[in-house]
């Protein structure tokens, strides 16, 4: 579904993407996680065919996005970071209109477009279907953007920071929607986020992008193991407080007891979380820059 090898992007003399490589198969949810300015949007725009790359091999649904035609475009869904278009249109009217463009691309296994009313219900906007778009709140507007992104029942869906400005309830519903798309429709999803919890919750695999490089990739558990953050061990001896960071906390504690025996007190071992791991990665790449 998605194949990217050695992708590079250069503006003038600066490289904003170095050698990005990624794969995603049908129905997989891939998160591109990284701080602002890491190159997430640039990557996703190249895959959407909105930006020409400097080097590397890119295939989306087997087609190079640089020469993707309308048939190819009909199989994609795109949700950009910020959109404030069609303010005068009503929610239902716009979804029905944009859906019409997908009618010629309907197939037996994928009926295109998605019925406007059903879709509005799926993103929880039924009450607002007759409302003018410019009167929607930020979160409602974002849900509409997602609805527009999936109106053509895409095989590949790109979501650029989809949940910015969502309240927790909206975020929860959105996550359920994405999971449903991947599971029921077999939609491959590539989403960018700088929210680690979101990436962990939604994605089958996470790619950590910092300063234009993929510095780690894998499932949440793999990532934590792969770049094992240091566990923190705290203890006291004779009322004095000690702290030690170590990758081998179990062995360290055994050593501690061997040496000091029963005088060790107040022992605490805090395991590295993915959050620590992520922050370490981001910090390291920032130092390198």
């Amino acid at each position: 579904m998605l194949e990217v090898d050695g992708l590079r992007m250069r503006y003038g003399a600066t490289d904003v993407l170095h050698d990005v490589t990624l794969r995603a198969h049908r129905g997989e949810v891939l998160a591109l996680l990284g701080p602002n300015g890491a190159g997430k949007t640039t990557t996703i725009e190249i895959l959407e065919g909105f930006r020409l790359r400097s080097a590397g091999r890119v295939r989306v649904l087997g087609v190079d996005p640089a020469d993707g035609d309308e048939r190819w475009r009909a199989r994609l869904g795109v949700v950009l970071q910020s959109w404030r278009d069609h303010g005068k249109w009503r929610v239902g009217e716009l979804l029905a209109h944009l859906g019409e463009y997908y009618v010629p691309y309907s197939t037996a296994e994928r009926q295109r477009p998605w019925d406007a009313d059903e879709l509005i219900a799926a993103v929880g906007l039924t009450e607002h279907a007759g409302q003018k778009i410019k009167t929607l709140s930020g979160g409602q507007r974002r849900r509409l953007d997602v609805a527009i992104g999936i109106v053509g029942r895409p095989e590949v869906l790109f979501l650029d920071e989809p949940t910015v400005g969502f309240d927790p309830a909206a975020r929860y519903e959105f996550h359920a929607l994405v999971q449903r798309l991947a599971a029921d429709e077999g939609t491959t999803v590539l989403l960018t986020t700088h929210d680690l919890a979101e990436a962990g919750k939604l994605a089958d695999r996470i790619m950590v992008l910092t300063a234009g490089r993929i510095v780690a990739a894998g499932t949440e558990a793999e990532l934590t193991r792969q770049i094992a953050g240091q566990d923190e061990v705290r203890w006291t001896i004779d009322g004095r407080q000690f702290t030690e960071s170590t990758g081998e906390s179990t062995a360290f504690v055994r050593g501690l007891f061997n040496q000091y025996g029963e005088s060790v007190a107040g022992l605490e071992v805090r395991r590295a979380t993915l959050e620590d791991t992520y922050l370490t990665l981001v910090r390291e790449s920032e130092v390198a820059r």
Partner: peptide, 12 residues
């Protein structure tokens, strides 16, 4: 306002 980009993201 992005209307044109929206048009670009949709087949034809």
């Amino acid at each position: 306002d992005g209307t044109l980009l929206r048009a670009k993201a949709i087949p034809n």
